[in-house]
Design a protein around this nucleic acid. Sequence first.
DNA 1: GTCTATATTCTGATAGAC
DNA 2: GTCTATCAGAATATAGAC
Lengths: 179, 179
Amino acid sequence: MRAAALRLFAQHGYAAVSMRRIAGEVGVQAGALYNYTPDKQSLLFDLMREHMEALLATRAQMPKEGPVEALEAFTRFHIRFHSQRPDEVFVSDMELRSLEPDNFAVIEGLRRTYEGQLEAILRHGNAAGEFTVPEPKVSAMAVIAMLTGVNTWFRAGGRLSLGEVEDVYWGMVRRAAGA
Amino acid sequence: MRAAALRLFAQHGYAAVSMRRIAGEVGVQAGALYNYTPDKQSLLFDLMREHMEALLATRAQMPKEGPVEALEAFTRFHIRFHSQRPDEVFVSDMELRSLEPDNFAVIEGLRRTYEGQLEAILRHGNAAGEFTVPEPKVSAMAVIAMLTGVNTWFRAGGRLSLGEVEDVYWGMVRRAAGA
DNA sequence: GTCTATATTCTGATAGAC
DNA sequence: GTCTATCAGAATATAGAC
């Protein structure tokens, strides 16, 4: 059910997908879904929360390094992690407005935590004299927006491999940071 | 009707907004809307098409310059134009999937035209020896994603003025391009 | 744990009075 | 050009049989 909901939400949007349609994908009737989720909103919220928690948990396993290495690691990690989960990323970016206020606050908090990690890397690099980033908070959001944009066009099997895409983006991020 | 639809589509999503609700915002009954649009899909499509055409028309008025000046002008223009039309940008980015195939193809074509203009600037800069951009097409999409990201956090009256935001982003774009 | 059936509300769109 | 009324169908969610 969760896999079907994720795919359908990504493709058509939360509001445009009915519980009947999710059930149809799974091969059951609509009523059966309510044995697995209390309602449609919880289904969306759980998908988004678990995506964000997986993102933070995976990043937490990365080694602590110097600013330049940390920035490169963040860049490559972000591209790789997000390119492997296009539906989760799409839903998490597009359906924030479909969350009820309490649920929105939770997801927003997780997003800010992630942004804060990149901001910290930029600040440490500035302090160490390795970066010249005038606005670490703004720059962190700018870099994340740039990196997440990979998902809008990258397709495996295209002209560039994912590793080559990482190289291009890391080159831009490195230069943008003044490293 | 169009202003109400734009705002509601941006806030709640196309599928989540009913014609009755748009009519309620306008202060008429739902049936009256059909004197102004043949159906809901046309309403969305017209909003998106006119936004993209305004974007291209406004850019067409900009003077032709050398690569560095053109890149700075593009950067500042993109941020300014998009920050003045947050609802149009949001709908145009988020509701591509709500367009019927023929309508999608039209909007997609307009988007590619715009991306191609930035790509051309980068290619000319490379040819003139003023930029060192390894992948102009990829870099153009990366820059546009980064710049459009301003809309997700910028609010007039915050710590930074729009001009200061432009300065920060132009600094990142300039360095990323190797200019 | 899935089914059928249903309550209740809402949907896009149309017809015809005025 | 807006209204009321309506069509035909779909929405979420629930109840109760099995």
